[in-house]
Design a protein around this nucleic acid. Structure first.
Length: 488
RNA sequence: GCAGGUGUAGUGUAGUCUGGUCUAGCACGAGAGCCUUCCAAGCUUUCAACCCGGGUCCAAAUCCCGGCACCUGCACCA
C-alpha cells in the first residue's frame, strides 16, 4: 500500500476524515472531518491564523453566498464557466477551446449561441473519434442558486478572496487608509469540479485561508524579513534550485519583496505544522497556467507519494481595478501625492491539502511494523494520554482522578484503561499523541508517574504536581525531555 | 466526463470464474470479564459485512442490466 492509501485507511479507522454521506452511497467531492480531524485541523488553522495576526494582518468573515454582480466584475462568471462539447458519437467531453484549436480554428467563441452557429457552419471534428461535433454546452464551475425575483442569481463563492475585495474601502478605512494592508479570511469555498479525486486534494467544498495583501503597485513591498533558509525553488525559466529567498529577490528570480516575503512566511508556516521541508518546493507557474486574475504565481507544492501537489498559491493579482470599474466606487488610495489602485499579493492556503500533507509527511512505520504519526507535538489532537498501568490496586482511580484534573488545565488529553499497556501506547502512537502518562505502583507511594515519549519510546519519571503546573505542551520538564529524545 | 478495473463487518481479506453445503470464513479491531509490575501477550465471551435498485432462476455475494462510490490512465484543475 502506498503512503496515501495507508493514511486514508488510518484516517477512516481512527476518525481523522472519511467520505461524506456514505450510508447513502456517498457523494464524490465531499469529505467529513472526524473527531480527531476536527482538532488537528483547528490546530493547523490556529498556527496559520496566529502567524498572520502577529504580522499586522486583519481578519474578516464574509458570506459564502454571493450575488452575480461580484463575479461578473471579478471575471469568474465568464472565465469560470467553460464552453464545452460532447461528441454525440463517443461521448468524449472537451473544452470547446481545445477542440477548436485541434481543428485549426482561431476563432474565440464566448457565448453558447456563437458556438452553436459556428459548429453548424463549420466542420469541427472530435479529437477522440473524428466524428463531427455539432453542439456546445455551458459548463459552470461555480454552483449557481436561484435568487429571489429581481435580485438575480446567487453563487456559492469559488474563493473567499472576493469577500475581501468588495470590502476594500471599509477595511482600508478601518486600517486608517494605510498601505500596505493585509486582510485574511478563513472559510469555505465551492467549486463544481468535473472529477473530484484523491480525497482531500480535490473537493467540491473546501476550506481556504486567503490573505490579500494590498500594496503600492510600483513597489509591491510588505516588510523586510530575516532569512537564513535554503528553500527549493523552481522558477518559470529554469531548473530546480536550492536558494535563499533574499538571494532570489536580489537576482530577480522573484519579482517583488511582497512575493518573496510571503513565500518565506509560507515556508515557515508549513514547516511549523509538519510539512517536511525536504518534501516542499515553491514553483513559479508558467504563464499559460495562470488563473485569469493573476499575472504571477508561486505555488507551494508538497511531495505526496511521488507527485508534487499544490497546497498554497502565492499570486500577484489585480482585482480592485475591476471592482472599481464595475461598481463605480473608487478603490484608489492616496500614497504621497499619487492616487493609486493597490495591487494585491495573495497567499492562498488550501487548508484541506495542508492537512493531508501533514498527515502524509508525519506518517511513519517503526521497527516493529506499527504506525507512528510523528505530528509536531503541539498540533497533535491529544497532547497526552493518561493510563493506569494495571486496572487494580487503586491505580485506575488514581489515574482517573489525575485525568479529571489535567483536562481542566489542558483539554487536549485522553484517558484509556482498556487492553494491555503496550496496546494503549500503540493506539496513541497511531494518532500522534506525543506523551503517555502512566500511573504505576510507585505512583501510589510518591505521586510520580512515568511519561513516555512517542518518538523514542523512552520514559522519564515526573511528579504529578509538576504535570499539573500547566498545559502539557508548556511543561518545562517535558520540553526538556523531548529535546533530549530528539537529539542524537 | 471517457476507458479499464474494483466494491464482502470499523480495517484488511477468503468466497465470485464453475449459482446450492455461505446459517458468508479468517485476521486485526472494538465491547465485557479474567489475568498481567511498561510497549499491539494470553484466556473466556460478545459485536459487526455481501454498495444500492431491478432482472434471470426452484435458488444470487456469485450471472445480467441500471445507478452510486473508489482506484488507475486520459481529459479537466478557472
Amino acid at each position: 500500500m502506498s503512503v496515501y492509501e495507508q493514511v486514508i485507511e488510518l484516517a477512516k479507522r481512527r476518525g481523522f476524515f472519511w467520505p461524506s454521506f456514505s450510508i447513502y452511497h456517498g457523494e464524490s467531492g465531499f469529505y467529513d472531518y472526524g473527531p480527531l480531524g476536527v482538532i488537528l485541523r483547528d490546530n493547523i488553522v490556529k498556527i496559520w491564523k496566529e502567524a498572520y495576526l502577529s504580522d499586522d494582518t486583519i481578519f474578516i468573515d464574509s458570506p459564502v453566498i454571493v450575488p452575480t454582480a461580484v463575479f461578473r466584475a471579478s471575471g469568474h462568471l465568464e472565465k469560470f464557466s467553460d464552453l464545452a462539447t460532447e461528441c454525440a458519437s463517443c461521448h468524449n467531453r472537451q473544452k470547446l477551446e481545445t477542440v477548436m484549436k485541434a481543428a485549426g480554428f482561431q476563432e474565440l467563441l464566448t457565448t453558447i449561441n456563437e458556438a452553436g452557429k459556428f459548429l453548424s457552419e463549420h466542420i469541427v471534428k472530435c479529437i477522440n473519434c473524428g466524428k463531427r461535433i455539432t453542439e456546445a454546452y455551458d459548463f459552470k464551475l461555480m454552483f449557481r442558486m436561484p435568487g429571489q425575483s429581481g435580485s438575480g442569481d446567487l453563487f456559492l463563492r469559488p474563493e473567499t478572496a472576493q469577500g475581501i475585495f468588495v470590502n476594500f474601502k471599509l477595511l482600508n478605512n478601518f486600517y486608517r487608509n494605510r498601505l500596505p494592508m493585509a486582510v485574511a479570511q478563513l472559510g469555505k469555498g465551492f467549486r463544481n469540479e468535473i472529477s473530484p479525486r484523491q480525497s482531500l486534494i480535490r473537493l467540491k467544498e473546501f476550506t481556504q485561508g486567503e490573505v490579500e495583501v494590498f500594496v503600492d503597485p510600483e513597489k509591491k513591498y510588505w516588510k523586510e524579513f530575516h532569512d537564513d533558509l535554503e528553500i527549493t525553488l523552481v522558477p518559470r525559466t529554469g531548473m530546480e534550485i536550492k536558494m535563499n529567498i533574499h538571494a532570489a529577490l536580489e537576482k530577480h528570480v522573484m519579482s517583488s519583496n511582497a512575493i518573496a516575503y510571503f513565500v518565506h512566511k509560507t515556508f515557515e508556516i508549513l514547516s511549523r505544522i509538519g510539512v517536511t521541508p525536504e518534501k516542499l518546493r515553491f514553483r513559479q507557474q508558467h504563464t499559460d497556467e495562470l488563473a485569469h486574475y493573476s499575472s504571477d504565481s508561486w505555488d507551494a507544492e508538497a511531495m505526496l507519494d511521488g507527485d508534487w501537489v499544490e497546497i498554497v498559491g502565492i499570486a500577484d493579482r489585480n482585482d480592485l481595478k475591476n471592482h472599481q470599474t464595475a461598481s463605480g466606487e473608487s478603490m484608489s488610495v492616496r500614497i504621497d501625492d499619487r492616487d493609486v489602485i493597490p495591487s494585491v499579493i495573495e497567499p492562498s492556503y488550501g487548508i484541506d491539502r495542508m492537512f493531508l500533507s501533514v498527515l502524509m509527511h508525519s506518517f511513519t512505520i517503526n521497527e516493529k511494523g506499527f504506525k507512528v504519526l510523528k505530528l509536531p507535538r503541539d498540533i497533535a489532537p491529544y497532547h497526552a494520554a493518561v493510563f493506569p498501568h494495571l486496572n487494580k490496586d487503586g491505580l485506575d482511580t488514581m489515574a482517573k482522578e489525575f485525568f479529571e484534573q489535567i483536562r481542566r488545565i489542558d483539554p487536549y488529553v485522553t484517558y484509556d484503561q482498556s487492553g494491555s499497556i503496550g496496546k494503549r501506547y500503540a493506539r496513541q502512537d497511531e494518532i500522534g499523541t506525543p506523551y503517555c502518562i502512566t500511573f504505576d505502583h510507585e505512583s501510589l507511594a510518591d505521586k510520580s508517574v512515568t511519561v513516555r515519549d512517542r518518538d523514542s519510546a523512552e520514559q522519564i519519571r515526573i511528579s504529578v504536581n509538576d504535570l499539573l503546573s500547566g498545559p502539557v505542551m508548556e511543561n518545562k520538564k517535558l520540553i526538556e525531555f523531548s529535546r533530549q529524545q530528539a537529539g542524537p
